[in-house]
Nucleic acid binder design. Structure first.
Lengths: 335, 335
DNA sequence: TTGAAAGCGTTACCAC
DNA sequence: GTGGTAACGCTTTCAA
């Protein structure tokens, strides 16, 4: 790598001041056509590319945002990331990606490291940190948006799915098909979505006049393996269970596998409902009934909200998407 | 967001020079325990966080690398990204993610924008740009590593899968089960992996004494929809086909669906082989025979190689992984 | 062991 | 229209 061409190299070569070059680059101020052409020609010839770093120092803007996700390998997040990245790209912004791997310490360190990098704003998906810690970490950021997690709107905008409503849809669907012995595999205890879904599910049960504890709850990692282990345990402890409501599709697929191992047929013996409607859901056998969520749109909306906040514009500071139940073969009532 | 605390704020508050503060932060030079403790205390109290931007300008190092992928929503890439991000994170590096969405112009712009951001190095997955363009774009970067694409080692290190070998494995498996009318759904024409797999497949055919053109080739987008369309067309044009070798698992799943539509049973009528062994492969019905590739390891290896290059260390400049054939239900010979 | 000054590459502000 | 100078927040180099 040869040494980078700087703005003064261009200025010298073009016999103008670096101010003039800067003006040409940034299309600011009046410049004679002739000078502009000359400068552009020199820029071209020297292959000059302005340093975002120097610019960032001078302007206090980096045109970079941070994205924090639990795990980009979890199929829920790549589409959200695409929605964010596409939106950001169109506006000349770059995206720094951080995985927390469900580790609160890493989540905290990631948010701080993004602060060090002076990103213009951050988007955090499914934050797992405790509320006070999260708020403290948000504070120093110029702008922030959370996905599926709530904080005071002064600290961050929120884009979320109405998880309680979605869980209600799923429970009502199961109850309509006479599945009353419902097990709930809730995912990580630190997931706000998991908590809200539990509440929504219990509310739906109560409205149907059923005792709340007829819904059995277990926690697990939000992975295939987590779902497998949790389903085994739940069914072993409650053999009467005839339906499982799962934290996400991955967990549901684990549950599917547990049922297969235990010779329980799905949906005849046990109905299974997933969440997120990832690509997987339509492809497994039996295809998964799932609570569908517009992932790409959520990402794009979060990015849009973040840019409003960066720009200091007043705008909505909460967007809530209503999920939809996609009925497939893993529950009764498909065809 | 209140104004950031700077190094001189700390210096003033601690009654030392900013040099001293800098030394404490960077653990450089000798400093009396007393001063160090004092400075650390003030840093803590003021909540000072050094600006990576200013640091980057002064040191010409940003502790950031760029990652360019065709599409993070394609399940092949998230695991690679995890491998890279984990490795980078441990060394204090951040990762800027760029999606090219299979658009060469965006790929080019992404590589340039990473140059502007003065990343310390870049990793490009499955670059689709023409060779001369790619080389020109690589040139200005301090360090670069390509995944599944080859350039002169002076320009970039290479981590790749032996695609030709993998395709050979698949073809031999099919031939061993008397499938000689093989169709090949090759993915994007600009994919070097696709080209190499075609060569490997044809070589395997030739070694079995079969005419090379008994392998019919079609291109497609590397998606579920792309595979569906390509398989429909290929089978319609060549009804004698009894096996399909697919660019990746997504394409193979599209092909699976095409067969279902055409009332062809898999694997009895048509055997299907995918590639990459993504999560999907084991979960669809019938489960997919696929050429398996160590995605996370590839990512980690690429990151490792990149850091060697950034550090200017001599090291391997090509790592080749041998893929493995995972036989499942979509081809004969499973149980 | 500590400090002063220069420099990194840009933009902002004020002259001309 | 254009240029000079300071400033952004840090590290590096040289002196003390």
């Amino acid at each position: 790598m040869k040494n980078k061409v700087t703005i003064s190299d261009v200025a010298r070569e073009a016999n103008v001041s670096s101010q003039t070059v800067s003006r040409v680059i940034n299309r600011k101020g009046e410049i004679s056509d002739e000078t502009r052409r000359l400068v552009l020609e020199v820029i071209q010839r020297l292959g000059y590319r302005p340093s975002s770093i120097a610019r960032g120092l001078a302007t206090n803007r980096t045109f970079t945002i941070g994205l924090v996700v639990p795990d980009i390998a979890n199929p829920f997040f790549p589409e959200i990331a695409r929605g964010i990245e596409d939106f950001a790209w169109e506006r000349g912004y770059g995206v720094i990606l951080c995985n927390t791997v469900e580790d609160p310490a890493r989540e905290e360190a990631a948010i701080k490291s993004l602060e060090d990098k002076r990103v213009d704003g951050i988007i955090i998906c499914s934050a797992r940190l405790a509320q006070p810690t999260l708020c403290d970490l948000l504070q120093p950021h110029r702008a922030a948006v959370l996905i599926n997690r709530t904080v005071p709107s002064q600290l961050a905008g929120v884009v979320r799915v109405d998880d309680a409503y979605g869980a209600g849809l799923a429970v009502n669907h199961l109850l309509a098909h006479h599945r009353r012995e419902i097990g709930f595999i809730a995912g990580p205890a630190s997931s706000q979505s998991g908590v809200l879904r539990a509440e929504g599910a219990q509310k739906a049960m109560a409205e149907a006049g059923l005792a709340i504890d007829s819904l059995r709850k277990t926690e697990c990692k939000p992975t295939h393996a987590g779902g497998l282990a949790a389903a085994r345990e739940l069914i072993a402890g409650h053999p009467e269970i005839n339906a499982l409501l799962c934290y996400n599709d991955l967990v549901a697929i684990g549950a599917l596998q547990a049922c297969r191992e235990m010779n329980l047929s799905v949906p005849q013996d046990v109905a299974i409902v997933g969440c997120d409607d990832t690509l997987l859901a339509g492809l497994v056998q039996p295809a998964l009934t799932t609570v569908s969520v517009p992932k790409y749109e959520i990402g794009a909306a979060a990015a849009g909200m973040l840019f409003s906040r960066i720009a200091g514009e007043a705008g909505r500071d909460e967007i809530v998407y209503k999920p939809e139940l996609i009925v497939r073969q893993s529950t009764p009532g498909c065809q």
